[in-house]
Simulated assay, not measured.
Amino acid sequence: MDPNDPNPEDKDAAAAAARSNLRADADQLAKDLDDLLAQLPSLTGEAVSTAKKTFLAKAERGSDTLASIKSSVCHSMEQCQECVTEYVHKEPMRALGMALGLGVLLGALLCRPGRRSYNGD
């Protein structure tokens, strides 16, 4: 464990807070867009261009949020990949056994006799 890494409970709390914030932002964006779409038939001229600018600003904010989430997920995936690589180097036989067991389990699930296949008929 790296002493500079935050506590795992802190990471879980931060992830939960980020998910909550994302959900709230997505709900607010959906509500704002629904309101905007409801007003669209009655808008004319300048109001349409204002609504368009509002929509584009909200869409850009949503895009920025998604970009930050993507960055966070990519960083987490890189950390997980490093942990797996480190584990495989420390415990090669145990990792090989887990991979073999997982392969057997997936093979059994995919090739079970009751499974129907599509013949194209």
Rank of each mutant, 00 (worst) to 15 (best):
A15Y: 02
P8H: 07
F55T: 00
A24E: 12
Q39L: 05
L43C: 09
M98Y: 04
T65L: 03
L102E: 06
L110K: 02
A67K: 14
G114R: 04
G62C: 01
G62Y: 01
L110G: 01
L56R: 14
K11M: 08
N21H: 02
G114L: 02
G45D: 12
A26T: 11
E91T: 14
D27S: 09
G114A: 04
D35R: 08
L100W: 02
A57F: 00
Q39G: 15
L66A: 06
A59I: 07
K53M: 08
Q79V: 12
M1G: 12
G103F: 01
L66R: 13
A26P: 05
K11P: 00
A13K: 09
A95F: 00
A13G: 02
C80P: 00
L40R: 15
K31V: 05
A14P: 10
M1L: 06
V73W: 00
Y118C: 08
A16P: 08
V48H: 05
R23L: 09
R112N: 12
T54A: 03
L100N: 14
H89V: 01
S49F: 05
G107H: 03
E82G: 06
L43R: 14
F55S: 15
R112Q: 12
R94A: 05
R116E: 11
Y118T: 04
A51K: 02
T44P: 00
L40P: 03
Q39V: 07
V48D: 04
V88C: 04
G120W: 06
K31A: 15
Q39I: 03
D32S: 13
A108R: 01
M98S: 13
N4P: 08
C83V: 11
L56D: 14
K90A: 07
D2F: 05
L29E: 10
L96K: 04
R116K: 11
K52Q: 14
Q81E: 12
G45I: 01
L22V: 13
T65E: 04
C83G: 11
D35N: 15
L110H: 05
E78T: 14
E46P: 11
N7I: 01
L37H: 15
Q39T: 10
Q39W: 03
S71L: 08
A95K: 00
L106F: 09
K53R: 12
H75C: 08
K58P: 06
D5I: 12
P41G: 13
K58S: 04
A108D: 06
S68G: 10
A14K: 01
L29T: 03
L106Q: 02
L106R: 03
D10T: 08
L40D: 11
D35W: 09
E91F: 00
K53P: 13
G120R: 07
A47F: 04
V48E: 07
R61L: 09
A67Q: 14
S71E: 12
H89Q: 10
D5W: 09
L29I: 00
M93W: 00
S72C: 03
D34T: 15
L22Q: 06
P3I: 14
A99L: 02
A38S: 13
P8M: 03
Q28G: 01
C83K: 13
Q28E: 09
L110S: 01
R19Q: 13
S49R: 13
